[in-house]
């Protein structure tokens, strides 16, 4: 089993199975371009630095990749109707501890940076699921969004959306 070491921004080392990394477009491209698959070269032992991903986030990403080992990897742009995606139970549980937290957002950013399309889609969907049944002010409070509206603007928006409620 070939292991490749990923190094997080806080310099934690994570030896990861080569097979798992195929889910990440960014790392896969790097491995191919740098010839890291070639065990005869010095490059094979070279750790891959990921300066944009913190250790705790990377750990979560690896955990997700391990669970989804062998899943088909999406290619190209996502043309599905994202509003109709259903988050599987395991993934729902996976995202839940990080729900309403910056960790979930960091995980989404990491998925984007590492180009793990399935993780990105599910993560975005999990975030959007937290909006369900909430009012604007509730979403604002839960996700730390500052209220930029004046009371007049807020009233106008409320009236505007009245018919849909």
């Amino acid at each position: 089993m070939v292991l490749i070491t990923l190094v997080s921004s806080d310099e934690q080392n994570f030896p990861v199975e080569r097979e798992l990394l195929k889910q990440s477009g960014t790392i896969e491209t790097l491995i191919v371009n740098m010839n890291l698959d070639d065990e005869d070269t010095d490059a094979a032992a070279m750790p891959i630095p990921l300066p944009n991903v913190k250790g705790d986030v990377l750990e979560k990403v690896i955990q997700w990749m391990e669970h989804h080992k062998g899943d088909p990897v999406k290619e190209g742009d996502n043309e599905d109707n994202n509003a109709e995606i259903v988050v599987p139970q395991w993934d729902d549980d996976f995202f839940k501890p990080a729900m309403y937290g910056s960790k979930h957002l960091e995980l989404t950013v990491a998925a984007s940076y590492l180009d793990i399309k399935n993780l990105l889609t599910l993560s975005c969907k999990a975030i959007s699921n937290t909006f369900k049944g909430k009012t604007g002010p509730q979403i604002r409070e839960e996700w730390g969004v500052p209220n930029e509206f004046t009371p007049e603007e807020e009233e106008a928006i409320r009236k505007e959306n009245e018919w849909s409620e």
Binding site: C124, N129, F131, P137, R140, V145, P146, I157, N161, E165
Partner: peptide, 27 residues
């Protein structure tokens, strides 16, 4: 939520259902 890069925020909003989208207009 607003610290997300714009393309990711858009992706999140695309995943939201219609009622959530209406609520997000008020955030």
């Amino acid at each position: 939520l607003l610290d997300l890069p714009i393309e990711l925020a858009e992706a999140v909003f695309q995943c939201a259902d219609y009622i959530s989208v209406i609520a997000l207009r008020q955030v």
